[in-house]
Amino acid sequence: MSLKIIVLAKQVPDTRNVGKDAMKADGTVNRAALPAIFNPEDLNALEQALQLKEQYPGSTVSLLTMGPPRAADIIREGLFRGTDGGVLLTDRAFAGADTLATSYALACAVKKMKDYDIIIGGRQAIDGDTAQVGPQVAEKLGLPQITYAEKILKVQDGKIQVKRRLERGVEVVEAKYPVVITVNGSADDCRPRNAKLIQRYKYAKTISERQNQDNDYFSNLYENRPYLNLTEWSVSDVDADLDQVGLAGSPTKVKQIENVVFQAKESKKLSGNDTEIDELMKELIVNHTIG
């Protein structure tokens, strides 16, 4: 048995290191001002996919990412870890998408990729933090969904068994595939990049990336090694309806953005010596805060 797996992965700004210029005046994210990384839980999803590929020889893993041209990095990161290829969905018309417009675009691309048994992504992206894209892609494709997955337990007779990690426990569920799965950060960590694969794929590029490298050496390279050509699709390539993508296709609108600043209080400073602690405790008891 072999499986066709599509991994949904997003390039995200590293929100753990956010500076002042992260947001533009119109309330959209200034991605250019932030280091871009592979969304952490999408790496967990990738690992589940690669494990299936090892378990079921002949299986293939392709990665699908939607983003600006530089998101081609995500496809290369996948290749460095063992995927068989990938697609970058990129078009100005996709800009400003909410989760619904994002899911619509991804679903169009998946349909175009045609053959698939398992579509697997992260639970949540660390910039939007919504965890909505997975279930919405499932609905758009008319497929069942398994969210909060921690481990794919087995695949057998057209059915897949998955362990889910919920707020207050665990659940094992079974579904027929094709199915959409979203994976938690508590799942296995992703394997590191493989040195041989880095060698093999470091020049893998999309058409737009190659435009700046237009010399003979490189054009021969891409002719002789077709696996170095990364697929890039636009709105029209995936037959997406312009009214349903990007800002225009998004029912939610960002009305206002505020940076978070907390009001500083006037505080009493104590050094922590015995008398001071005794006095504080006394005060708390007297005013009935404790006791």
Binding site: Q136, E167, P251, T252
Partner: peptide, 23 residues
Amino acid sequence: ATSIGRDLGPRVSSALHSGLTAD
């Protein structure tokens, strides 16, 4: 915004094409 609501809400909003705001 529980493991149920965050599984259900997006699926419903997608089918109805209505916006959903998380958390």
